[in-house]
């Protein structure tokens, strides 16, 4: 069921996002440097991408898998550096491979032992992360000092974003959107009812792997900006916020993309106001503010709305009880 109010909301969000730069320029005296523009653009692109893909992660109950996979990417970054030096391509490919290995390891633990999902995720998360830290410490001891900036993959470092990264984000974002659009009904069905999808003739395993790949790709792209620890927030917060406003998957994905873009852009702008505020964490805080707003205010589902309805119910009930006596 498509709710009409959602589309204006998306338009308003995007308009607000576009106006954000000039507004902050006039209200807070933000100096619109080239860097600020690039970072804000990168933040919104990443927010849009992870918002859209994150919807599937949340609906498949894989929120925490996202957390484990982003932590698992760290050793891949380090190994990529050791093998190829500081080339973004190599680092991202390494991150992707490590993250994918983490995914397989979680699956292997679940398949061959009686350890439950939460512990399996925890084991992979912390072991891969520790491997990454150990490798980074080793790299720091190397004589060639070109390793500068690998730390940024832990907490994210928006200032490191350059124009070519934007092109990469845009290109991959376009590809992901294309895959989502083409395989929309397959992804939807596999997420809602995997058994029926397989019985109905879809290649369940293949679609499942494709969807997991999309999530891994998104996580890897976000590492440079948000860092391995906070990436899961970029992935799931916009989706959870969007879910409160609509009952249609189409709208949820588009709204999550818009919310993610808004959080990414405005987080970047706020952090540009004060050099001591790191960008990645600020984006996460904005995204969570959106979640809090949505959970409280969303019509029909929100906490406030439900309380109002409860009060009304109680009043109705009371007046009805009084009637026969009157």
């Amino acid at each position: 069921m498509a709710e009409r109010r959602v589309w204006p909301m998306i338009v308003a969000l995007l308009a607000l996002g576009v106006l954000l730069l000039p507004l902050s320029q006039s209200l807070f005296g933000l100096r619109l440097t080239y860097t600020v523009r690039v970072v804000a653009l990168g933040g919104s692109l990443l927010g849009a991408l992870s918002g859209a893909v994150g919807c599937f992660a949340v609906l498949r109950r894989e929120s925490l898998l996202g957390d484990a996979l982003s932590h698992a990417a760290l050793p891949g970054v380090a190994i990529g550096f050791l093998l190829a030096g500081r080339q973004l391509g190599a680092l991202l490919v390494g991150a992707g491979i490590a993250s994918w290995l983490g995914l397989r390891l979680v699956a292997a633990i679940l398949r061959t032992t009686r350890i439950k999902q939460d512990a399996a995720l925890g084991i992979v998360l912390v072991s891969f992360f520790a491997a990454g830290i150990a490798l980074l410490t080793y790299i720091q001891s190397l004589p060639e000092a070109s390793q500068a900036g690998l730390d940024s993959f832990i907490f994210g470092q928006a200032a490191a974003i350059i124009e070519s990264d934007i092109a990469l984000l845009g290109g991959v974002g376009l590809a992901v959107t294309l895959v989502l659009a083409l395989l929309w009904k397959e992804f939807k069905l596999i997420t809602f009812d995997a058994d029926f999808a397989s019985a109905g003739g879809l290649r369940g395993g293949l679609i499942d792997a494709l969807l997991s790949t999309l999530i891994v790709v998104t996580i890897v792209l976000g590492l440079q900006l948000a860092g391995v620890i906070l990436m899961v927030g970029m992935l799931i917060a916009p989706a959870i916020a969007a879910r409160q406003w609509t009952h249609s998957l189409e709208q949820m994905v588009v709204l999550a993309a818009a919310l993610g873009a808004f959080a990414g852009g405005s987080g970047a702008v706020i952090s540009a106001l004060d050099s001591d505020i790191p960008t990645g964490p600020m984006i996460i805080v904005v995204a969570f503010a959106l979640v809090a707003l949505s959970i409280t205010l969303a019509p029909g589902r929100g906490v406030l709305w439900r309380q109002l309805r409860q009060r009304e119910n109680r009043r109705n009930f009371r007046s009805r009880r009084l009637e026969p006596g009157a």
């Binding site: 996202g66 957390d67 990436m231 996460i284």
Partner: peptide, 8 residues
């Protein structure tokens, strides 16, 4: 999801 929201 609640846990995943809380950590970051």
């Amino acid at each position: 999801a609640a846990l995943g929201l809380a950590f970051p």
